[in-house]
Design a protein around this nucleic acid. Structure first.
Lengths: 340, 340
DNA sequence: GCTGGCACTCGACTGTAGCGAGTGCCAGTC
DNA sequence: GACTGGCACTCGCTACAGTCGAGTGCCAGC
């Protein structure tokens, strides 16, 4: 494990050059472009060690070296410093996000912004319902046996669902139902509502029981049990940058994975701690994404996290820049949400 | 212009073979695989004429022939008969669409179904607000100066928007506002509301004027002026079928176009007559899609059209099959909507 | 008007050769 | 002991020549 400082410097130089040029880098080019202070031969020896340790590899015998997933990992963990954003980027972020009228609008602008700045595929999760609080529940009678339930969360998210009632319910009863559910649920995290919803059914007047029961089922089913998470996506065209070199020739698996909301949620939704997460190539649990890297983080008003956002690109990615951008965008979005 | 029956038969055979094999088709192979009743030499003469007329072309001098956009056009217009769906396909459609709980659900299932059946990129427009009628308008106070407007259309579509009021409005006034807008607008096509909304402002009591004015602005701006059209997309991974042969090597322009909602709307939204529309390659107005074909149609409950749906694929596409599928899916979705 | 035959074209494939980037190793130097 | 210069070697890439064959256009004949 003898990785002295110079070997690390060599690895860093290889990663930087390869990310920039997209071509395997050789010992000679390396000493020319970086001030390593040693000869190519020495670098070659270092490279041999790095290769033995699994940080770099040779595509063919007579080619230069390319970082492995493990090499990128070391680079991200120990060799790179998060790049500060350029003023232009800061301005772009601000300009892009002011003027958003809506949560939908915020999410769409954010995902486009992220795709544009990182020149990669961007993914933004809508504020998770499980982590939001109920601001208001509206019941709109569609017919005597049909009710539209509209839930407005404190994050600005609005979710609706049609309910088929077991028996006709008069308008007055709907008013009562509305008052009851609002009294009980407004201000609660959705994750902690199940017992409350249960209580609602039990406390309801007899003639409201059946309606309240189906209502509570719908509330629990569609709003609480994850499922209703939503995702916005942008920048898929960026996958075609770098020709077919990245992603080993086929975009198919990537595009397939991007169509599965469940997969995307797994990718960016699991941001328990508020730090930025970087998944490099093989570290990814989803087989289709073994050739890709994901940089993601959580966002939310203040310190609370209500959702995740991130980008997906080739393992050959500008990690420092991408990480910085993802963080910055998440912070701005958080501030925006906090203003509500 | 002397295109006798046999020449048309030759063109049909070329299109069918090319679509099936993805390889330029030669005269010999043609007579072997189709009962044309003449020799290859004769077919060659016919081919020469077809080429002169611009229906087919040769990729290189020593290769077989490939249909041009114009050739596909003739094929679609005069040489193909819409294939009846297989029973398996019918069953798939039914199975896929029953059990949809929601408009969102219907649209998502539809777009996935379409992508799966045609093995192409599917696009479904949500029922257009302009063509829907207002079923209910709900005003939910978020704070004294903020109102959430929720519009429920008869198609099941729900749209919401946050309104900043110029001055605080007490809860009682909100109730009045709610009653007023509902009395006036429920049951109207959104396209014809502008004068009604205008009238609302003028008839409002003086203290409600300012609130009603901003409210009406929002209604007109976000709900009426198309803008708020929504689109669902699926099957982008299907673009990678057929290697890089289709789409002349780069998916980039296609993917870019698919990210622009405006472009997609233009593509499938303009279905004035209720017939199926086929746009082949160059006929497409969007430059990025010059290498693609689009098959689209309108759908809606009964005879009214409330939105469009369709698929996008390479010009080398199974037109008869695709057209049949698109039509069938549109019909099923229409029936489903009619049930509400 | 159709057909068989024939000369021709040209892309695809194969094999060979030269080039050059890049390596590993080794002996020599500080 | 660590670094360096030198050297032989590997091997992918490119260019070039040659062959093959699918496919064509044309023409004379039925």
């Amino acid at each position: 494990m003898g990785l002295d400082d110079r070997k690390l410097a060599v690895l860093r130089a290889i990663v930087e050059d390869y990310v920039a040029t997209q071509e395997p880098v050789g010992s000679k080019a390396l000493v020319e472009r970086h001030q390593l202070g040693v000869s190519p031969a020495t670098v070659r020896n270092d490279m041999a060690v790095l290769e033995e340790e699994g940080y770099i590899r040779q595509p063919h015998t007579s080619a230069g070296r390319v970082p492995t997933d493990r090499g990128y990992r070391l680079f991200v963990d120990r060799l790179s410093r998060v790049k500060p954003l350029s003023p232009a980027e800061r301005r772009a972020i601000e300009r892009f996000l002011v003027g958003a009228v809506d949560l939908d609008d915020v999410v769409h602008r954010t995902v486009r912004l992220l795709a544009q700045l990182t020149r990669q595929v961007a993914v933004v999760q809508y504020p998770s319902l499980a982590r939001s609080k109920v601001r208001h529940l509206e019941l709109v009678p569609i017919s005597t046996t049909r009710l539209m339930v509209v839930m407005i969360a404190d994050t600005g998210r609005v979710e609706q669902r049609l309910v088929e009632l077991p028996a006709p319910v008069p308008a007055d009863d709907v008013t009562v139902l509305r008052r009851l559910v609002n009294e009980k649920l407004v201000g609660c995290q959705l994750a902690e509502t199940p017992p409350l919803v249960q209580a609602l059914v039990e406390e309801a007047a007899p003639q409201l029981r059946p309606a309240m029961t189906t209502l509570s089922t719908v509330l629990l089913e569609t709003l609480v049990e994850r499922h209703e998470e939503r995702i916005a996506l942008a920048g898929t065209a960026n996958l075609t940058r770098g020709g077919l070199l990245d992603f080993q020739g086929s975009l198919r698996p990537i595009l397939e994975a991007l169509e599965e909301e469940v997969v995307l949620l797994k990718l960016i939704g699991e941001t328990e701690p508020s730090t930025t997460r970087v998944l490099i190539g093989d570290e990814n649990e989803i087989d289709n994404l073994r050739a890709a890297s994901v940089v993601s983080t959580g966002y939310g008003p203040g310190a609370t996290i209500v959702g995740g956002l991130g980008v997906l690109g080739p393992t050959r990615m500008d990690y420092p820049g991408t990480i910085a951008t993802v963080r910055a965008v998440a912070r701005y979005v958080g501030e925006l949400l906090a203003q509500n």
